[in-house]
Design a protein around this nucleic acid. Structure first.
Lengths: 238, 238
DNA sequence: CGAGCAAAGCTGTCTAGACAGCCTATACTG
DNA sequence: CAGTATAGGCTGTCTAGACAGCTTTGCTCG
């Protein structure tokens, strides 16, 4: 019965399409009704509805029913401005100094992010390391890793261009990502950044997937905290 | 049977406590085993485990079993989960050491955030400064500022309670916010946090407004980077 | 001794029913 | 007419099973 994809996922996708052209606040068919419509148990319908509720597409009220939540700006999603755009917004010119651009074995972190489940020791990646600058002022050191299939990236304009634009020219659409934020001291990168070894850096470890959920990029950016700040706007749900 | 709290929530809490003192990677009892232990159906156990997996405390591998994942705490920026709830979710006990709780003049940053447009020199605020701890391990130093009208906060349980719960009891609903992320070294806070002066800290400057756009809170949290990490999920827009 | 196969255990999925608690609308009563 | 009971629909919770697909273990056979 579960051909290859669970039934509740098929139902969830179908309901998403149905929600796409529904009005805000509109009553949604009840669980028993959907169970009958899809010829399926109520628990299976609930599994499908759980995904819709998690994404804020549906509001479920005990005793009343389920209701469409349209523009309710559902998920707590931040927007991160790219280095390139943030430089332009500040009236600076974004520049890069290229330190490395080659195909080489992956670090364990890079392998786990780009080839989940595969053997980490055999993984190779396209590695691009750059010092990012506002005009001529070093601001960050950025270590980017891409799947080995993307050797075409090595031919991109890495000094002044945007890597995301290069990805798009290859037909890849970065669509969703996660950043982990931490901090460290400059240490070994102090020389490249022309700062003291104890200078605090803001570390952003970013993983981006394309529209199909395939890993596209794993980048660790270390920003000189005095010269760069990340901003996250968010909604609060609960 | 569900006296007041669902069975699966009781089980989930109990398992969280059990996870609190478990080693990373350790095998966790299987679903059938837990079902028998708690005298409950397997589906109920799964409901409890789902919460643990969602919070990243458990890794579940089909065909193998469930395994404890004891990673560095990573709080999603944008879900307003408080330090308090975060600690509980990780099976730790949240504690605070109160350094300051009083009404005093605002710093320029605090005045700009809480009384935009007003004369900064005349502004007063409710200031609450705390060292936040997991069990007895210092994790962050937090300087919170609230509008002077909220003196009631000074009567809240600041050592073990949650400030956000106190806000809710006052009828205030945090709804929108902005985080600015940076880094610094511990310096003057090194003593309170019991770390070296050059220890890198992750700095989150958070401004929150209520549903009407009225400023509610301006907080600067400085996390010891090794012990606490922030996470941002984002869409790539452009 | 090694290779391959079978069994057991695990998570993931699914069913068909059950009761509790909440909400609404209707009917009944004073 | 106002107020109350009641019936029915809804979501939330829970059960006791079942099968599929995966992994590990251990046994058997060549």
């Amino acid at each position: 019965m579960p051909a290859s994809q669970p039934i509740y996922e098929r139902i969830e996708k179908q309901l998403r399409r149905r929600l796409a052209h529904a009005a805000d606040g509109q009553a949604f068919p009840s669980e028993p009704r959907l169970a009958q419509e899809f010829g399926v148990s109520r628990m299976t319908v609930r599994a499908a509805l759980a995904g819709l509720e998690r994404d804020g597409l549906l509001e479920r009220v005990p005793g009343k029913g389920s209701f469409v939540r349209r523009s309710a700006a559902a998920r707590p999603v931040g927007t991160l401005m790219s280095f390139h755009d943030q430089a332009l917004a500040l009236g600076r010119t974004p520049r890069s100094r290229l330190l490395e651009a080659e195909v080489r074995p992956a670090t364990p972190d890079q392998a786990a992010a780009l080839y989940p489940g595969d053997d980490p020791s055999a993984a190779t990646i396209v590695a691009i390391t750059r010092v990012r600058m506002f005009d001529d002022l070093p601001v960050a050191i950025e270590r980017a890793a891409f799947p080995a299939a993307l050797t075409a990236l090595l031919n991109a304009d890495l000094e002044t261009g945007s890597l995301h634009n290069a990805l798009r020219r290859l037909g890849l659409n970065p669509s969703l990502g996660t950043s982990l934020l931490s901090a460290r001291t400059a240490d070994d990168d102090a020389i490249e950044l022309a700062v003291a070894a104890t200078t605090p850096l803001l570390v952003e470890t970013r993983s981006i997937v394309d529209q199909n959920g395939v890993p596209l990029e794993h980048t660790v950016s270390s920003y000189i905290a005095d010269r760069y700040t990340l901003q996250v706007d968010f909604n609060v749900i609960e």
